[in-house]
C-alpha cells in the first residue's frame, strides 16, 4: 500500500495575493507556489523544463505563469501554452512542469506531493515524518482528518523562518501544530537545509503586534537552543 499523502503548510494565503509567485519547498524539493489573477493556487517544481530556470522568479499574467528567462507560459495545469521565441508555434502538450497538490484551508496554503503522472512519479517531496496530516480525497483535496483541527475564526499573523531543522522545531513546540501564548496557532513547515518555517494564525481577540514580538522571541529561543 502506498504511503498516505502528507500535507505541508506552505504559506499564509494572505502572503500570496492574486497574480504573484513565491518560492517554498515540499520536503527537500524546491517549489514555485503561485496564484492566478482569478485566484487559483498551484504548486509546481521550481524549474522551467526549457533551461532549468527557477519558476519562482517568473511572472503571472491572467491564468498563466511565465518563466522570467525566455517567457515560456504555462497554464494552471502546468502545460506549456506559449513560447515567445516562436509566437506562431503551438507548443506540444508534452512540455509540462511536474506538479504538487495545493489546497487552501483556514487561510493557509497546503501542498502535498502527487504520485500520478502530473507529479511525474517523483515522491521526493514526501520527506519523512514531516508535515501535518495525511490523506487525500478522490478529487485531490485533503481528507477531513488530514489537516490539524483549527478553529474557523483564526486570522493570519506571520510566517517566519527558523534556522533549525523542522523536526527539531516540531519536537520543541510539542507538535507540527502547536498552540502558543496569546491565542496563536503555529504550523511548522520543514524546509531544505535544516530550516523550518513557522506559519502562524491568531484568534480574533488576540493582539497581533504583541504576538508578532512573541514569535520573534520564540525564534530566538529555538535558535539558541540549537546553538547550545
Amino acid at each position: 500500500m502506498p504511503d498516505p499523502i502528507l500535507w505541508h503548510p506552505a504559506a499564509l494565503s494572505r502572503d500570496l495575493p492574486a497574480a504573484t509567485v513565491m518560492p517554498t519547498a515540499c520536503g527537500d524539493v524546491e517549489v514555485a507556489l503561485w496564484r492566478s489573477a482569478g485566484g487559483r493556487v498551484s504548486a509546481w517544481y521550481d524549474r522551467c523544463p526549457h533551461r532549468g530556470m527557477r519558476l519562482s522568479h517568473g511572472f503571472v499574467r491572467g491564468e498563466m505563469l511565465s518563466c522570467i528567462y525566455h517567457g515560456w507560459r504555462f497554464d494552471t495545469e502546468a502545460v506549456c501554452r506559449k513560447i515567445p521565441a516562436h509566437p506562431d508555434l503551438t507548443p506540444p502538450e508534452t512540455i509540462t512542469v511536474p506538479r504538487f497538490r495545493a489546497a487552501e484551508r483556514h487561510g493557509v496554503i497546503w501542498i502535498a506531493p502527487r504520485s500520478d503522472a502530473a507529479g511525474q512519479g517523483q515522491e521526493a517531496g514526501q520527506g519523512q515524518g514531516r508535515g501535518q496530516g495525511r490523506g487525500t480525497l478522490d478529487d485531490g483535496d485533503p481528507a477531513p482528518d488530514a489537516l490539524p483541527p483549527l478553529p474557523g475564526d483564526l486570522g493570519p499573523l506571520r510566517s517566519l523562518q527558523v534556522a533549525r531543522d523542522g523536526a527539531a522545531v516540531a519536537d520543541a513546540l510539542g507538535g507540527w501544530h502547536a498552540r502558543v501564548a496569546g491565542g496563536v496557532h503555529v504550523l511548522v513547515q520543514a524546509l531544505p537545509g535544516g530550516h523550518a518555517a513557522l506559519h502562524s494564525l491568531i484568534d480574533p481577540e488576540g493582539d497581533a503586534i504583541a504576538a508578532s514580538r512573541r514569535l520573534e522571541a520564540l525564534r530566538r529561543d529555538l535558535e539558541s537552543e540549537a546553538a547550545a
Binding site: L12, D15, P17, R158, Q161, H195, A197
Partner: peptide, 12 residues
C-alpha cells in the same frame, strides 16, 4: 529573500 514574505509584498 525567500524567508521574508512581508519584504516580498512591500517590494512588489
Amino acid at each position: 529573500l525567500a524567508p521574508y514574505p512581508a519584504i516580498r509584498l512591500w517590494s512588489r
